[in-house]
């Protein structure tokens, strides 16, 4: 009996779980968590009122699409900035190297909220209303670019000196060495933390609400201020972000697994 339970619910590296065991455990975990939440809300005696919130569904929908739009702009932009600053930090020209270093340290050492206000008063306000989210995406890119550049730099530096020497010995130029030797090897190191940073970008975009950009979190805020249904307004927001971040997180995990196998 105990042995049967153990073989169903326990897993180690040497004795992986069966499909049935994983399904049962998953159900159990979900049941446990929803039980706790249910108990918490019962204690609150909270009266759910979904109808008023449902009436504002188009606001949620538009907010969610705006968030996706911001993320879609920010991802490539921050990758580009991250790559540029990572390369600058390896530049042979010292002033450039220091510029990159200072940018990274300041960006990583100050709150995103402060940066948002700061950049916003410099160039965000001049923009027409419809383009505000572009400015928001740009600020977000400047923020995430600093983190991505550190990830990229670590990836580049993880490629051993012997590899660079080998590339030099066969006569590759510096650019060719990066293209054919360094980047392909660095990408394997970079991808898992990169995917994690992508999820951060999606979540951090909620802070753009303080600039009045009508993204997902602001949508929930304005709906809740009318309906006073805070849980009803913010639960869909949590769900909406999960729909975006969960696939990224799962993708990260599969990447990490692959990176482990290959080394």
């Amino acid at each position: 009996m105990i042995a049967a339970l153990r073989s169903t619910f326990c897993a180690t590296d040497r004795t992986p779980a069966s499909l049935r065991g994983r399904a049962l455990s998953g159900t159990l975990a979900l049941g446990l968590l929803s039980g706790v939440s249910f108990a918490a809300f019962s204690a609150l005696r909270y009266h759910w009122a979904w109808e008023p919130v449902w009436e504002y569904r188009t606001i949620f929908w538009r907010g969610w699409l705006t968030t996706i739009g911001i993320a879609a702009l920010t991802l490539p932009l921050s990758c580009g900035l991250g790559l540029a600053f990572a390369l600058l930090r390896r530049s042979v020209f010292l002033p450039l190297r220091y510029v990159a270093r200072i940018y990274v340290e300041i960006t990583r050492g100050t709150p995103l909220l402060v940066q948002l206000y700061f950049y916003w008063y410099i160039f965000g306000q001049q923009l027409p209303r419809d383009f505000r989210f572009v400015a928001g995406a740009l600020i977000l890119s400047l923020f995430s670019g600093a983190y991505l550049s550190e990830i990229i730099r670590a990836g580049i530096e993880s490629v051993g000196r012997s590899q660079l020497e080998s590339a030099r010995a066969i006569g590759l130029t510096r650019a060719q060495t990066y293209r054919h030797v360094v980047f392909p090897q660095a990408v394997r190191q970079i991808l898992p933390p990169f995917a994690g940073e992508f999820a951060n970008i999606v979540k951090n975009s909620s802070l753009l609400s303080v600039l009045g950009i009508e993204e997902f979190a602001l949508a929930a805020g304005s709906v809740s201020s009318v309906t006073f249904g805070y849980f009803e307004s913010y639960l869909p927001v949590a769900l909406g972000y999960l729909i975006l971040t969960l696939p990224i997180s799962l993708w990260t995990q599969s990447l990490e697994k692959r990176a482990r196998f290959e080394t």
């Binding site: 012997s162 590899q163 030099r168 010995a169 066969i170 006569g171 054919h180 030797v181 090897q185």
Partner: peptide
Amino acid sequence: RAHRRRLGVVFQAFNLFPHL
């Protein structure tokens, strides 16, 4: 670089490109 191109160098630690 032109000089290196005309030489074939073999290292102690092989130094093959592991991703290829």
